[in-house]
Amino acid sequence: MRESAAERHDRLLALVRERGTARVSELAERLGVSPVTARRDVEALAGRGLLDRVHGQVSWPARRDAPGGGRPGEGPVIGLLAPSATYYFAEVVRGAHEAAARAGARLVLRVSDYRPEEDRARTEGLLAAGAEGVLVAPGWRGPEDRLAYGDWLAGLPVPTVLLERRAEPGSPLDGLDRVVSDHGHGVLLALRHLLALGRATPLLVARRDSPTALAVRAGYAGALAALGLTEPRPVIDSVPAEEDPEGFERAVRALYEAVRSGPASAALVHNDVDAIEITRRLAELGVRVPGDLALIAYDDEVAALAETPLTAVAPPKRQVGRHAAELLLERLAEGAAGETGEAEARRHLSLLPRLRVRASCGAPGSVPGTP
C-alpha cells in the first residue's frame, strides 16, 4: 500500500525528534524519497511550526518540549487515535474535540482504519506532531489483536487514556485511565424492554468483528443470567451484507426460521445498518416488524431513518469522547503544575447507554422517527 503524505510526515517528525537535528539530504535517504520530496515536506512542516529549518538542516523546536508545549500562546496539544472517523467513532471524536476546544487545547487526529499493526506508528506520529498526551482507541477487532498489539500502550512517555476499549484484568493496560460505554448495561436495557412488552426471550443477532460487537455478545449472556433466563437459541452470527451476501442471507434465514417456527418474537440486532437490512429482507420473506418480530438495534447511528424507525440502544459516544478528553487534560494539568506527593488514582469510567423507543418494538405510544 502506498504511503500517504501524512504518514511520511509522521516518520520525518519522528526522525527529527529522535535526533534533535538532521540534514535534509539525510532525511531523504532515511525516508527513501527524493531530496526534492524531503525538502518539500520539511518546508510544509516548518510552515506549520512543527520544525525549525536553518541552512539545509532541520531541528526539533525547543519550545515543543517545554511544559505546555505547542505554539506560543496556544493551550496543550492532545492526540487522538481512532480506528475510524465515521459511523460510531464520529461522535466520539466530536465529543473529544468539543472538550478540547472549550479548554483552549488543540486536538490532532490520526485514523488507523482498523489496522492494529499500525497503531503504534500512528501514535508515535501524534507524539512527533507535538501531542503532549493521547487518547487511544486501538484498531483491535478481537482479543487476539489486543494480545498482539496492546502492551506497548502502557509504555508511552505521555499521559494516555484508553478510549472505548477494555484491558485484560491484570495486564499492563489495565493500569491506564480509560473511558468506555457499558455495553452490558445497554443490552440489559433492551432485553428488559422487550420482555416488558410481553415478548418471548429475545434472540441476539450480532457480528464478531469489533470490540463493541464482542461486548454486546458478552452483555447478552450476562443479561440473560441477570434476568434468570436461558438462551432461547445460539447467537446468530451476522456479517455485512455488502461484504458477504451469502453470510448475510444465512443470518436472515436463521432469524426467519426462528420466527416462523415459533420460539422467536423479539430480537436485538447489532448494528443499525445490519438491523435495517435484516428488517427489509424479512419483509420480503413475509415477516413483519413489529407485528411478527419486535426488533431493537444497537448503536443508534441511523436507526431512526429506517422505513420502520428502529428502537435502538444508544451508547453515550459523544460523552465518552468528552469525558476522556477532560480526563486527559486534567492529567496534563497535574504534570504542568509539578504536583508532588501521592498521585491521583487512575480511573476506569463506564458510561451508561440509553434506550430510544421507536416503532420497531411495537411499544404503546412509541413515536415513529423519535430521536
Rank of each mutant, 00 (worst) to 15 (best):
T279L: 11
L188G: 07
L31R: 11
R354A: 13
H193S: 01
D41C: 05
A103P: 00
E43R: 14
G291K: 10
R94E: 15
H270K: 03
A345Q: 09
S34G: 13
V58A: 00
H185L: 13
V136K: 00
P159N: 11
R356Q: 12
R356H: 15
L153G: 02
L31D: 09
G56Q: 06
E144W: 08
V16C: 04
L327N: 02
T21C: 10
T201A: 12
R253K: 11
P83I: 04
R356E: 14
R71V: 12
Y87D: 15
S366K: 05
V180H: 01
L327Y: 01
D182Y: 11
G338Y: 12
L135N: 02
L156A: 10
G335C: 09
D113V: 06
P169M: 08
V269D: 01
R346A: 14
L162N: 01
P211T: 10
H97N: 14
A336I: 07
A264T: 13
P353A: 09
G150Q: 01
L355S: 06
V269N: 00
D52H: 13
G184Y: 04
A254F: 04
L328H: 02
E257W: 13
G291Q: 12
V158K: 06
G79N: 06
T212S: 12
A190E: 03
L327K: 03
H183E: 13
R166Q: 12
A254I: 05
P232N: 08
A303Y: 03
P309Y: 13
E164A: 12
R347G: 03
G247Y: 13
G70D: 00
A304G: 14
R102W: 08
W60T: 02
R106A: 11
R331L: 13
I276H: 01
G365R: 09
G68S: 12
L135S: 01
A90E: 14
G75N: 14
L109I: 04
A99T: 07
T37A: 13
L268C: 03
A251N: 05
A121S: 12
R217P: 04
D41N: 06
F248S: 10
L80E: 00
S84N: 09
T123I: 13
L13D: 00
A96L: 10
P169A: 11
A241K: 15
T212A: 14
S34R: 10
G335M: 10
